[in-house]
Design a protein around this nucleic acid. Structure first.
Lengths: 158, 158
DNA sequence: ACTATTTAGTCAGAATATCTGACTTTCTGA
DNA sequence: TCAGAAAGTCAGATATTCTGACTAAATAGT
């Protein structure tokens, strides 16, 4: 047991940052998706998650903004958003300052989904904290936060 | 400048581990994909990356194995793998121990793609190292490695 | 050895997701 | 005020993924 664990450790040695980020990221998204489905939010697909990950919960978001953040065309995002509107997760209100634009906002149902997703991620986070230790988890989050700030600076300088 | 940076820091405070992993992970994959396209590997799509991420470079992998690791059906993986065979990235050799199975292996071209992908990730890693510091980068990788070991234990205990 | 069951992979067809190109409406800057 | 630029839509094509039904080979239980 200890032996095989150490063997697995060895196998991690050469791993690149891409793979090291991918495994935990997919773990989170798949667990969240399964929880949502099992909790009655069963009319969404995996693809819709990107919308909930990027929408501004308070003020809503524009279609174009969601598309940019999700690295997809506005037409593709339009397709996802329409599904979510039809199923009652989103509604759009005209933007008071721009006659072309609409702000996509979470409905009550949409907000409930997001709430559950957040709780699920928190639960995963707590599980990991127990397993790798509270200190390491805090360090992990702190470094990732720093990295995310840098990476978003790269993007946002238009 | 310092002010706005601190403001952005504040915005990270409430971020969950899901978002903190997603931003750097997508940064890596999009940069790798763009580098591959720009370097002449322009007959692959984003979806194909998952195959290269999961294939065993030395001994090849089975279709079913790739499908499981990628969280998709073997039919879907079969579709991706066929594309890659047609474009000369993969070839399959019959499994000597199992008449039903084939081992999917990288061709020379496939190996060249993987090599470039690895170099690109290493370059990103070095860039990040310069920006957040070598110590933090090492710590980040070390904690992620530990986490990945745990998460893969969860999966592999069938 | 013989049958059951499981496993690896394929074929066919449907549903979902994403893209490109062309368009309308509204906004913005010189 | 007019020429882009930006927000969003429509239409059609392609790509991705799924489900169901299938064949052939391996394996387990008897």
């Amino acid at each position: 047991m200890v032996h095989s664990k150490e063997k697995r450790w060895k196998q991690q040695e050469g791993r690149l940052i891409g793979a090291l980020l991918r495994v935990p990221y997919y773990t989170v998204t798949y667990q969240v998706y399964e929880t949502l489905i099992a909790s009655g939010f069963d009319d969404i697909t995996h693809a819709h998650l990107i919308v909930f990950q990027n929408i501004n919960e308070k003020h809503g978001s524009r279609l174009t903004e969601l598309a940019r953040k999700s690295n997809m065309t506005k037409q593709s995002m339009g397709y996802l958003v329409n599904n979510l509107k039809e199923n009652g997760y989103l509604e759009d209100i005209p933007d008071p300052h721009d006659g072309r634009a609409r702000r996509l906002c979470l409905t009550e149902r949409g907000a409930a989904l997001v709430q559950l997703a957040i709780e699920t991620v928190r639960a995963i986070e707590n599980d990991w904290k127990e397993r790798i230790g509270s200190d390491q988890m805090d360090t992990l989050k702190q470094i990732l936060k720093e990295l995310v700030v840098l990476l978003e600076e790269d993007t946002q300088e238009t």
